[in-house]
Simulated assay, not measured.
Amino acid sequence: MKLASLMISSTMLATSLLAGVHHAHWGYTGHEDPTHWGDLNPKYAECKLGGSQSPININKDIIVETKGLAPIDFHYTSGAAEVINNGHSVQVNIKPGSFIKVDGKEFELKQFHFHTPSENQIDGKNFPLEAHFVHQAKDGSLAVVAVMFENGKENEIINKIWKKMPHEAGKKVACGLSAEMINELLPKEKAYYRFDGSLTTPPCSEGVRWFVLKDYSEVSKDEVNEFLHTLHHPNNRPVQPVNARKVLQ
């Protein structure tokens, strides 16, 4: 993806995902659902024309074994600033200072948000909940770390976020989530699948580095239902054609 185009998409990320402001109405139901995104606004054309769209179904047919795939270097050292219901997800905005290092480059953690059911699949399986940790480098390029949550015991950190999450779209409140708590959302083992993809919401900009962690965290059914009740509907984009892409592990 050209740098100029990526910088534009990054600006849109800052004004939409971070601030909850959108250039055109889109959603997950009716005439604004994912099948129509590419027709809602010319800026969203990549949603239907792109060849490297996310999410995808990660399966053995597209996985390539790679020796020496470097671990993600996590440096989550700052806490949360606020939690916002942007009408499409519940999003936690992060104070400056946290980042990952991949490909010799630092990507600052801007925010993380949730989808139910999961957007990415593993061997055709959806998970009850998926978190996307969205990072941005100084050159505007984006990297997303995805964490899958499987049914299990109550997740104490999720519970803290849910207690703060606004139930009205467009509202945000201060969030005292510490860096330690944010790290606890990640599974202990951080091996991953890697592929090139896109944002999973309009404008569906491509050129995004995706890292889907192989190990899972846990969440209770009640916590998933509370999130679903807040949004009133599932908020996952269906899996997209893989085309010629491969997934590295």
Rank of each mutant, 00 (worst) to 15 (best):
G79L: 11
K48N: 10
S198K: 13
P34N: 11
V144T: 08
A244S: 14
K160E: 04
L6I: 11
S141N: 14
N183V: 01
A70E: 12
R194I: 00
H75E: 05
K105L: 02
V242T: 13
V219C: 07
A191P: 00
N159P: 00
E184I: 00
H25Y: 09
S5L: 09
N151P: 04
N120C: 06
V21A: 14
I94V: 13
V102T: 12
K101A: 01
F195Q: 05
E32M: 06
S205K: 12
W26I: 00
S141Q: 13
T230W: 11
I8H: 10
V212S: 08
T11R: 14
A45V: 03
S9C: 09
Q121G: 02
A70W: 03
F99P: 02
I182G: 02
S52K: 15
F114A: 09
H88S: 07
T201P: 05
Y193T: 00
L177W: 10
R245I: 04
V247H: 14
A24E: 15
G27T: 02
E119P: 00
L231Y: 08
S198W: 10
P234L: 12
S98M: 08
K110L: 06
K221V: 01
T15P: 04
A169H: 10
F114C: 04
D123Y: 05
N126Q: 15
A4I: 07
E106N: 14
N151R: 13
H88N: 12
E119D: 11
E168G: 02
V173L: 13
D73S: 11
P117N: 13
S220M: 07
T66K: 15
N151I: 02
S16M: 13
S220T: 04
S78V: 01
I182M: 13
V239K: 13
A14L: 09
K105V: 04
N235A: 07
V144N: 09
T15V: 08
F112A: 03
T201F: 14
G38V: 02
E130C: 02
M12N: 07
Q249P: 04
L49G: 07
E106T: 04
Y193K: 02
A4F: 10
I122T: 11
H31Y: 10
K43S: 05
E130T: 01
Y216M: 08
A14M: 09
I157V: 15
N243R: 15
V64C: 10
G50L: 06
K171P: 00
V64S: 12
N57T: 05
P55G: 05
F107S: 02
Q111P: 00
G79A: 08
K110Y: 03
F127S: 09
N59F: 06
G197T: 04
P55Y: 08
N57G: 05
W37T: 01
N183M: 07
N155Y: 06
A24W: 09
